[in-house]
Design a protein around this nucleic acid. Sequence first.
DNA 1: CTGGTATTACGAAATGTTTCGTAGCAAATA
DNA 2: TATTTGCTACGAAACATTTCGTAATACCAG
Lengths: 129, 129
Amino acid sequence: MNKIPSLKPTDSELEILQIIWLHGPASVRFVNDELNRNKLVGYTTTLKLMQIMIEKGLLKRAEKGRKHIYTAVLKEKETKNLLLDKFVKTAFGGSAMDLVMQALGNHQTTPDELEELKALIEKMESDKK
Amino acid sequence: MNKIPSLKPTDSELEILQIIWLHGPASVRFVNDELNRNKLVGYTTTLKLMQIMIEKGLLKRAEKGRKHIYTAVLKEKETKNLLLDKFVKTAFGGSAMDLVMQALGNHQTTPDELEELKALIEKMESDKK
DNA sequence: CTGGTATTACGAAATGTTTCGTAGCAAATA
DNA sequence: TATTTGCTACGAAACATTTCGTAATACCAG
């Protein structure tokens, strides 16, 4: 029934999504192992979370032999867009520019990244003409 | 006892903080009225939230006559920095640059804003040398 | 002073998130 | 085949967040 997940993933759910986006469709075991590189979390905890994500429509799954293989329903980019929109709205009063300026001012950036950013800006300016 | 609030404000708490940052120290009545411009929320709900924020150290208060006047403990900018750091970490795998690129690509920007942004980049590049 | 109004304090319900224990079952292995 | 191992399902506890009802209290208008 649930086709389009309108709900925003929680922090824990997002950690799981990141792993699946990066590595592609994965079993609970794999996701749990990845999670445990950073923090201690029980296998059944991860399983339960992923089952809930199925209910919410964030993941779908296929049974491969005995295991279940989970796939992300939403693409990485669209999900991050949703989260970004919400974050800009709740934390920066809707001003994406404020966020960009503050993000640049408070994080390390390499010269390459700055060049890339400048290129994007040039492109935006020429598109606008 | 609680002096420095390390906790991140919840979404509801953030709405209250935005109002206090914008208007300065305020009573529960004022905050609740402001909140109700956007959504329906009961007075005691707002009161309770603000009391909890006192416990967490997000707000402090002074008794002016019979009312309590609430003040934000953290400055707007430092709070947004904390939130931004966390968001970059959870949603963009720690890459502020990814966030910046995506934010620029998905929101309207005025030529003035782009100029301002370019100026910031120039400044960062010259600082780096 | 008295009744009505605005305010704070408190407790608790409703909801959402995270965690894990236990059970049941299937597959691999000894 | 008998045992162990690994997986899923399910329920529930622990915790956090949000909401509001009720009560106590201070203030104000008449």
